[in-house]
Amino acid sequence: MNTILSPLYIAVSWIIVQFHKLYSLVFDEDSGWAWGLSIVSLVIVIRIALIPLFVKQIKSTRNMQALQPQMKKIQERYKNDRQRQSEEMMKLYRDTGTNPLSSCLPILAQSPFFIALFQTLSHIANNQTVGVLTQSQVESARSATIFGAPIASRFMDSARDVAELGASLGTVRTVTIIMIVLMSASQFFTQRQLMTKNMNLDVKTPYMNQQKMLMYIFPIIFAVFGINFPVGVLIYWLTTNVWTMGQQMYVIARNPTPGSLAFKQRQERLRKKGKLAEEPVETDTKKAAEAARAARSQPKRQSKAQRQSGGGQQQPGQVEKPQAEKPQTQKPQGQQPRRQQSKKSQPGKPSKPSANSKK
């Protein structure tokens, strides 16, 4: 096992040593601030490297939200057959390429680094070198304290073990309990924020039940196993929980899942700022354009007999040319004798005498 994880030991210890050199320019190199901030910086480096997985997690969550109407139909169709319901759900996941466990990817990806840091601090507590840490650096880290608790100490350590690190058992347990409570509370709040604000609670699906279960399971896991974690590991996990909570708050506020409470709140904020005022206007314009197209295309459906029976009345959208042609075909028939009379009266000029002779 040590051979397999030795590259991780080297990577984790190297990152800590580099940040420790940086913080030693400001703090005492043997202080808990120098070593504690080095662990915090290790978390920041790892979380930045895991941003692509976080983006994948967001996309998977959105896909699950989009599938909720179909999930509801499957539940209603096979509500009396749990096995068939599960089979149809799994088929839907396969067809859409959705993985309901993608929300756990960031936690799973951090596990190797978490184990490496745990083993590194365990070596420091036993005054053993690990990775690139030298013996002098191990002794410096072993004596460093956070609020009076050595970073290599644990809640379950005996009074003798704690005394060897130069601290009291009461101080160590008080600090570890506070950090465990903060760690569990931050994890619970992060998961609860995801469920209440960034999910559509109107549709009950297995994914919702899974997220609700994780909301209660993770804090319990942290509380149970936290008593066996060194203080340095508790610093690591508390920092990563705070990072996750802040990252999630940013994403929910800026790009919430459609249909969620956060999405409705964002739409309301944009509406108050006037940024959504143009949307109804654009919709009315499109409807007016479609109505205009329908009005222009309606006269083309009339037959020729219907257009001729309309007489001189102009129909909506009718071209003026057919109206001009109809009078031309009727006027020559009624005006032809008058034109002939005018032509006969012009050469002889006695048009008037001819009229008198008739009288």
Rank of each mutant, 00 (worst) to 15 (best):
A324E: 14
A305T: 03
K352G: 11
K272F: 08
L270C: 00
S297P: 00
Q330S: 11
V319G: 15
K331G: 10
Q341K: 13
Q302Y: 07
P347L: 04
A277K: 10
A288L: 09
P347I: 04
G274S: 01
A289I: 14
E279T: 09
R266F: 00
E278F: 09
K344W: 10
A305Q: 06
P350N: 14
S342E: 13
K273C: 04
T285G: 09
P316Y: 00
Q330H: 10
L270V: 00
K287A: 06
Q302A: 07
K321R: 10
G310N: 07
Q315F: 09
Q314R: 11
A291F: 04
V281D: 07
Q333V: 10
P353N: 01
Q265F: 01
A295Y: 06
Q318Y: 04
Q313R: 14
P337T: 02
V281T: 12
A305H: 03
K273I: 04
S309G: 05
G334F: 09
G310M: 01
V319H: 15
K349N: 06
E282A: 14
R269E: 12
Q306K: 07
K352R: 15
V281P: 01
Q265W: 04
F263A: 10
S342I: 09
P316V: 02
P350A: 13
K349W: 08
A291M: 08
R293G: 03
A324V: 10
S345D: 12
E268K: 12
S342M: 12
N356T: 14
E278S: 10
S354E: 14
Q335V: 01
A305F: 02
E325P: 01
Q346N: 11
T285R: 13
Q340K: 08
Q302W: 02
S357F: 06
A292F: 14
F263H: 06
